[in-house]
């Protein structure tokens, strides 16, 4: 028998073709803060990291200067996972890129069984500009829906280029259809987020456990909001990293786009077809539950 070695958390990054999986993984692979991780990708052809960051390139494996390795899955995920588990220096975290048509939740389940793997997170990307049509498409609607249903965490990509009212619609759609997944944008994802999710899952603690550094909340309300109260809360909270939302302002009945990065706050009128409030908030674990935030800012109904 092999000596017992620590089981690395096993996370899956999924999402339909074009959702931005490779862009995200490229960024994570190039991150100097990366843990010693193994990233299993479908195709090296798409991996475009700075040559200066690559330590060595052999057949099916690229070793990065930051300690990460990147392997191709080829046509056999089992072989890819076996290869990284057999490395002399077993990685601290394994991240698998699920193919564009795979069911990432099903792939992730291997870690619930295998004694050599610990459960990590299931991250499913959604292309903000395409997801609405994809969920109606005659060929792929059910595939895309299945992927998002299995997500622990939905990452919205390519949100910023869209007009604000369209952005609100995407966040509204996803938060309504997949209420059990947390929601944020790919721009916000760092290694810390992947690792926190993994650690939480392993300990069976909710994502808001005290040790976590990152939580995401989705705020929803069908009633108008007091935008002044919302601004006040954002300016005084020490727990919000970023926030983006659309609200019908109770003061004038108009829709406002509210964006916060740290303490920097920007509120502007905009066109968006919403009833009350739709927002995503990224913050530290002391961030109150979504329902409590909604109550503080004066909206009546909420869903997390």
């Amino acid at each position: 028998m092999k000596p017992a070695r620590p089981a690395p958390p096993f996370s899956v990054v999924g999402g339909f073709l074009g959702a931005g999986k490779t862009t995200l993984l490229n960024r994570l692979l190039a991150d100097p803060q990366a843990p010693r991780c193994a990233v299993l990708v479908n195709d090296f052809g798409d991996i475009a990291v700075d040559q200066a960051l690559i330590q060595s390139h052999g057949g099916e494996t690229i070793a990065m200067q930051n300690g990460c390795i990147c392997c191709t899955i080829g046509d056999d995920l089992a072989r890819g996972i076996a290869t990284v588990l057999d490395l002399a220096a077993r990685p601290e975290h394994i991240v698998v890129e699920a193919s564009g048509v795979a069911h990432p939740g099903r792939v992730a389940e291997v870690a619930r069984i295998s004694p050599e793997l610990a459960p990590g997170g299931v991250f499913v990307l959604a292309d903000a500009g395409a997801i609405g049509e994809q969920l109606q498409d005659q060929w792929i609607a059910d595939t895309v829906d299945r992927q998002l249903q299995s997500a622990g965490h939905i990452l919205v990509s390519k949100l910023e280029p869209l007009p604000p009212h369209h952005q609100a619609g995407v966040i509204d759609l996803l938060s309504r259809r997949y209420p059990s997944a947390s929601l944020s944008t790919t721009a916000e994802v760092q290694w810390a987020h992947l690792l926190e999710q993994a650690r939480d899952r392993r300990r069976g603690a909710p994502p808001a456990a005290a040790h976590a550094r990152f939580v995401a909340r989705t705020l929803r309300s069908t009633a108008p909001v007091d935008v002044r109260k919302l601004a006040h809360w954002l300016e005084h909270s020490r727990d919000v990293y970023r926030m983006k939302g659309w609200a019908v302002d109770r003061a004038d009945g108009r829709v406002k786009l509210i964006q916060a990065v740290g303490r920097r706050l920007n509120i502007a009128p905009c066109e968006a077809d919403i009833e009350g409030l739709v927002a995503i908030v990224i913050g530290n674990p002391r961030l109150p539950a979504a329902a409590d935030i909604v109550r503080v800012i004066g909206a009546r109904e909420s869903a997390d």
Partner: peptide
């Protein structure tokens, strides 16, 4: 998990389907 089939008592009955169950 999904690919692990169970008997009436909830014990795995030995039949396994798909990567996540077969790989281990």
């Amino acid at each position: 998990i999904d690919g692990v089939y169970v008997d009436q008592d909830g014990e795995p009955n030995g039949e396994l389907a798909e990567f996540a169950a077969v790989f281990p």
